[in-house]
């Protein structure tokens, strides 16, 4: 659905996006992750035809963004960083305007607007001035304007900024459901958001892609050895010694009732063995859990320590 090849954007001498290559398939929800100023918004603005790239090519639904911007814009819904709303307009009128601008056929404008108001939960404010709405509602109006023409591709720049936790969950659900028949790219610098909604993430730093994969794969790729936590009633030395003998365990650190079990990287699945041994030695298993490297850590590793440690991935 979206192909980006060798995309480069310069603001004067400053490189905002540097030789970006990626692809998004139909129906996929892809998260763009990166610190502020990484080039997320710039990439999105290029994809929507708002600004041209200095070099490279971007193709959306078979249409080149540069050669055929009108066709691309027809199929794209865009929510910019700041929702593009007119404060002096009423929500309903504004969405009607957005629908007309997005070439919704004359007869179905009103129906599309009503549909999107329901979908985004704007019913109670539809006849209020946008300028008088809270940030959360304004953000929803921004989302509604991106969706009003039912575009094939949705590009959302930080869609949940300024929303309260309940609204965030609602919007995430909405985005997830959109993934069924829309292709979605959303950017964020908040990791749980991406984890909650996206199937695949692209991590950008300083205008270049530093990692691109599914969340699970990225997590395992960076796990240089899983860590399990075992809580027991009776952390006796005998039991610990027996556990240490299991192949694939590199180290065990007792911390009170908790045993921190480090695995050798790329080891086999031995969780049942650990439990078995602990039960045999009647240690009294209370809790057993895997400690995952969180996306935050991956993100920080990729975007900060990447340069210092060389080939991190």
């Amino acid at each position: 659905m979206i192909q980006v090849t060798h995309l480069t954007k310069m603001y004067g001498p400053r490189v905002a996006v540097n030789d970006l290559n990626f692809e998004v398939k139909k129906g996929e929800i892809v998260g763009f992750l990166g610190p502020n100023g990484a080039g997320k918004s710039t990439t999105m603005k290029i994809l929507t035809g708002f600004m041209p790239a200095t070099q490279g090519q971007a193709v959306v639904d078979g249409h080149d963004v540069f050669e055929n911007p009108i066709e691309v814009k027809r199929n794209v819904g865009f929510l910019p960083e700041n929702p593009p709303v007119y404060p002096e307009m009423q929500v309903f009128d504004y969405l009607e305007f957005a629908a007309r601008m997005r070439q919704v056929p004359k007869g179905s404008v009103s129906a599309s607007v009503k549909g999107i108001i329901d979908k985004t939960g704007l019913g109670e404010v539809q006849h209020r001035l946008i300028g008088n709405l809270s940030k959360g509602f304004r953000q929803r109006v921004g989302l509604a304007q991106a969706l009003v023409h039912n575009p094939k591709v949705l590009i959302l720049d930080e869609p949940t900024v300024g929303l309260d936790p309940k609204q965030i969950i609602e919007i995430r659900e909405l985005i997830k459901n959109l993934g069924n028949d829309h292709t979605v790219i959303l950017s964020s610098h908040i990791l749980p958001e991406v984890t909650a909604t996206c199937q695949r993430i692209i991590i950008i730093n300083k205008g270049a892609i530093v990692a691109e994969d599914t969340i699970e794969r990225l997590t395992t790729r960076l796990n240089k050895g899983l860590i399990y936590n075992l809580m027991v009633k009776n952390p006796a030395a005998e039991g610990i010694a027996a556990l240490r003998k299991i192949q694939g365990i590199s180290n065990i650190t007792p911390a009170g009732p908790k045993l921190i079990i480090e695995m050798t990287p790329g080891g086999q699945e031995i969780r049942d063995k650990i439990i078995e041994t602990a039960v045999q030695k009647s240690m009294g298993v209370l809790e057993f859990s895997a400690e995952r490297v969180s996306l935050e850590e991956i993100f920080l590793q990729l975007t900060t320590t990447e340069n210092a440690t060389g080939d991190q991935i």
């Binding site: 603005k45 009108i70 814009k73 865009f78 910019p80 593009p84 709303v85 601008m101």
Partner: peptide, 14 residues
């Protein structure tokens, strides 16, 4: 100033 120009410029109009 309001960034609403982004709506105009990303709509399929010239």
């Amino acid at each position: 100033k309001l960034h609403t120009i982004e709506l105009l410029m990303t709509s399929p109009v010239t």
